[in-house]
Design a protein around this nucleic acid. Structure first.
Lengths: 222, 222
DNA sequence: TAAAATGTACTAACTAGTTCGAATGTCAAG
DNA sequence: CTTGACATTCGAACTAGTTAGTACATTTTA
């Protein structure tokens, strides 16, 4: 009586892996590496724990795959910007808003990076792919600053990595520290009005920093 | 011959608790809440696991005690500043540098806050003590901005909480994301020269932001 | 038929938290 | 100074529940 015990199963390894990765991303970003439960991931998957180990070998292997997948996704976004044709200030503003929007709409990514930092970036070190990333952002910023200095828009010769850090820090912090900051100051950082204000703010801050003269904006007393 | 089996034990509950908290702070900040091992904490303590449960009841109880202790420590630092007598720009610079130095010298605190965010600030919510904190910082910033607007040093009516966020984000990020950022850009953020440059940078950025006119530093085309 | 993919049930190890049975220190009252 | 009540400390074995990882059988694909 071998009726349809096989409930119409179709082998689809790619889809199975993608399914696992999607669920694992959420589990890891919610509970951290140690806090995540392989069984919990398996349960919310169309497939089984057996498959997790079949494809990813171990919990850490799965975690690394999740991390790489998250980084790979940003790469796509940032590469598509056409900044060379825009005037420096406008180009920088566009780049900053892209970073801002990315972090805002990818809290899972932000949380994974936080978790990875708790583990001293130990897994990231093992992954070639991840390290190659982000180099392009620096080159973009470098080019914008150079153009801005040339045409007089900017007056400060800032280090592009430092500028990237100034931008990243704010965009990242808004998301990574949403809960503690929100709790302490009783402010909901995901309100639309707040998001808009902050997006403008970080761009204004970076741009006015680059516009202000070298040696700091201090007006030395006569 | 009952030689000195009692190895000169002294009852010192305060010291015992402090010992446990110090070790636990390191363990939690290194491994996260789920990753921390109570047995590991006990081992590195002068005392035993038995004592941990005697004083703190549970792993979570210990974690919360660690969190509160960390927050209590900052309170002391920030309160001691005498900013009211300084001119606005100088006052703000001093406040920013204090925040910067605090985060730089208290990586454990930064990591605990990161961990707490991963857990949606669930423990912080339960602690009255923690929430009361940081209110004073906002009042300080508010006063500085008001003075700066009055005497013409600043031109932008910025929200003090937003400004605090701009400052905190950079100072915090430098420490919280030290490992991933350092790995990606092959830059050691704990180098003395880098620290100095960044300390100046964030102060310059915030100050030039407040000095630049409302509506952003954009020069609208003719 | 072989290889890849999947499902089920299991295990070996770990870990938070407990229990027991003391010994030793503290401190106040007598 | 003694005594007794109580708080603190020690140490180690124990447990109940959890969890990463596996053995083995089965189905699908090609």
């Amino acid at each position: 009586m071998a009726e349809r015990q096989g409930n119409g199963r179709k082998n689809d390894p790619q889809r199975t892996q993608e399914d696992i990765l999607a669920v694992a991303t959420e589990e890891f970003s919610t509970h951290g590496l140690a806090g995540a439960r392989v069984d919990a991931i398996a349960e919310r998957t169309r497939t089984s724990k057996r498959m997790i180990y079949y494809y990813f070998g171990s919990k850490e292997g799965l975690y690394l795959a999740v991390l790489e997948r998250s980084y790979r996704r940003i790469r796509t976004l940032e590469a598509d910007l056409e900044l060379a044709n825009l005037p420096p200030e406008k180009a920088l503003r566009t780049l900053i808003e892209t970073t801002f929007d990315h972090d805002e709409t990818n809290p899972d990514f932000v949380r994974l990076v936080s978790i990875e930092n708790i583990h001293h970036a130990a897994h990231m070190l093992r992954s070639e792919a991840i390290r190659e990333l982000n180099v392009s952002v620096i080159q973009m910023i470098e080019a914008i600053i150079a153009r801005g200095l040339a045409d007089g828009t900017f007056r400060r010769k800032a280090d592009p990595i430092d500028v990237h850090m100034l931008i990243s820090a704010f965009c990242f912090f808004r998301v990574s520290n949403r809960y503690t900051f929100g709790t302490i100051f009783r402010r909901d950082l995901s309100e639309e009005a707040t998001i808009e204000r902050h997006r403008t703010m970080i761009a204004d801050a970076v741009i006015s920093y680059l516009k202000s003269p070298e040696g700091g904006p201090i007006t030395p007393p006569g």
